[in-house]
Design a protein around this nucleic acid. Sequence first.
DNA 1: GCGACACTTCGGCGACGGCCGCAATGTGCG
DNA 2: CGCACATTGCGGCCGTCGCCGAAGTGTCGC
Lengths: 250, 250
Amino acid sequence: MCGTDDGRVTSDSQIALTRLAGLLADGTRAAFCLALLDGRAWTAGELARHAGVAPSTASEHLSRLVAGGVLAEEHQGRHRYIRLADPAVAQLIEDMAAHDPPAASPPGTLRVAGARRALAFARTCYDHIAGRLGVAIADALSSRGLLERRAGFAFTEAGTAWLDDVLGGLPGVTGRRPLARQCLDWTERRPHLAGAAGAALCRHALDQGWVTRIGSGRALAVGPAGAEAFSRLLDIDAAALRLSLDGGGA
Amino acid sequence: MCGTDDGRVTSDSQIALTRLAGLLADGTRAAFCLALLDGRAWTAGELARHAGVAPSTASEHLSRLVAGGVLAEEHQGRHRYIRLADPAVAQLIEDMAAHDPPAASPPGTLRVAGARRALAFARTCYDHIAGRLGVAIADALSSRGLLERRAGFAFTEAGTAWLDDVLGGLPGVTGRRPLARQCLDWTERRPHLAGAAGAALCRHALDQGWVTRIGSGRALAVGPAGAEAFSRLLDIDAAALRLSLDGGGA
DNA sequence: GCGACACTTCGGCGACGGCCGCAATGTGCG
DNA sequence: CGCACATTGCGGCCGTCGCCGAAGTGTCGC
């Protein structure tokens, strides 16, 4: 009404700012976004349970967040997979969450960055291994002729044998879940191995102590046994992977 | 209720995120913040008029923004000067305002950064010159023995003569407004010349075409005449000032 | 000291928005 | 083909929040 000052520009920006801020100003929606910072694509139901609201409530929130460009969705069967729209949004959310009120938050402010670093290295995605390690695994399988990139992922004959050997048996393909599926990473922007094989591999890695969960989140740590195993089976140097992350992503 | 996932960290972050987002989710508060992106310290009344709300409404909003660490205030007499709390907040607000909804904002997205660059170089602050140029003027006056830093700013005898010479007369010190006052810059974090002399100098610079307003905002451009004048009078190289900004602040 | 002025506090009004439950839709799976 | 389940759409309730006007406090300037 009054602002002859900055005119049109301010007006546009104002709409954009309030729109985005309004989307994040709700506790439930904020909980969704923060949960999604782990890089996974959650289902609507998971998010609803996580935030402690009814599925219908979550559904509405998610629709608004998607419409607002904060989240992106992907329908697969009867599930609706939700992820952050893009890394810029993730950065923005982290920045905002890290902003301190003047006299508050004595502890636990720096943890976000550290946690994200860990997540960028290795984490679970649904039930398989993602992050830099997950991408490295897919790359190694691919370069060794065990996995083919055609319309997703597909194990070669040698790949199936390898899998059988490593896991001590092939994962049952009971349902309609394919043995291999590719899953795109938010941090890496490259595909990693999902599907029944990805899940079995992840379970195996956890069972064997190759990787262990960090805290209660999705982040994974690679232990000595894991470093040895990934090196022997796929020629992956996990330590170098982590180092390159520390060097590059500070 | 359900979130055993990320536990405490998420909970803390969630509060911080919703708190900050909630502050920016209101149109009036957003208008305040965007107006303050120009680096000035506005008074509460100015902001109220700018946003088109009653002073009482503005007062409440400002109190909340200050309490939330978004804005900072400084009481001077019967005025309450408001500025952005720190550059990080400014950056955050710009980032948020620049975030596009999926299908919107065809034009005018990059303007923010450019405008801010211009503002960092030279702008008006109330009625005097601020930004890098403003600081340079104060520095030059000081180093030439024309201005003393004691409890604010004070012109020396030589300084008063210089002022009289440049302006063709001393500014009238009718009210209680001091001839020289120091004013702290948000972008530069260093003081520049305010008060009656600062205002007179700014008016003179505008009158003489040394500087001209860019658009309808607070940003100033230094013309050839200005470059010559600032060089002759104070040995300030305006072109170098601007270049150093372009080089350093990309 | 006395008006003018900037700002703040308070009470109340109105609207927006989040939450739920219920019913409907569409998809896997036997 | 039919059940189970994930998700969505639709009222309806209720709390929160932004807005204002009026009254109060402190400062400026004569």
